[in-house]
Amino acid sequence: MKKLILLFLATLSIVSCNDGKKEKEATVETKEETETLISNKTYAEISVKEGGKWEGREYKGGEFKNVDSLSVPENHTDHSWFIRYEGPGWENKNVGYRLYLDWRNAIDIFGKKVDTLVLPYVGQDGFDSYHEEADWGLDILKAGKSMGIGGYGRYMNDTVAHFRNVGNTIATVINTESRSSVEIFYEDWATGKDTIDLEAKLSIFPEGRYTKAELTPSAEIDGLTTGIVKHGPQLIKRQSENGKWAYIATYGAQTLVNENDKLGMAVFYNTDELDKQIEGTDDHLVVFKPTTETITYYFLGAWEQEKDGITTKEDFLSHLDELLKELNSNNTLN
Rank of each mutant, 00 (worst) to 15 (best):
G264Y: 03
S39Y: 06
H319Y: 15
C17N: 08
G223I: 03
K41F: 09
L235P: 07
W189E: 10
L12S: 06
I236Q: 13
R154V: 02
N334E: 14
W303M: 06
T191N: 15
L141N: 08
P88C: 05
R179P: 06
Y155R: 08
Y251Q: 12
D125E: 14
G150D: 01
V287L: 14
D115V: 02
G87R: 04
V48M: 02
I46L: 09
L320V: 03
I107T: 00
I149K: 02
Y100R: 09
V166N: 11
G61H: 12
F127K: 13
I38M: 09
A219S: 04
L119T: 00
S16R: 12
N242Y: 00
T211R: 15
P290W: 03
T11V: 10
E214D: 09
S203R: 07
I38P: 02
R104E: 11
Y85H: 14
G280R: 01
S69C: 13
E322D: 15
I170K: 15
L285N: 05
W103T: 04
W303T: 05
V118L: 07
G51M: 10
D125M: 04
G243K: 05
E50W: 07
E293P: 05
Y85R: 11
E199S: 00
I295E: 10
L274Y: 00
S13A: 15
S16T: 13
G150S: 04
P88F: 07
K201L: 01
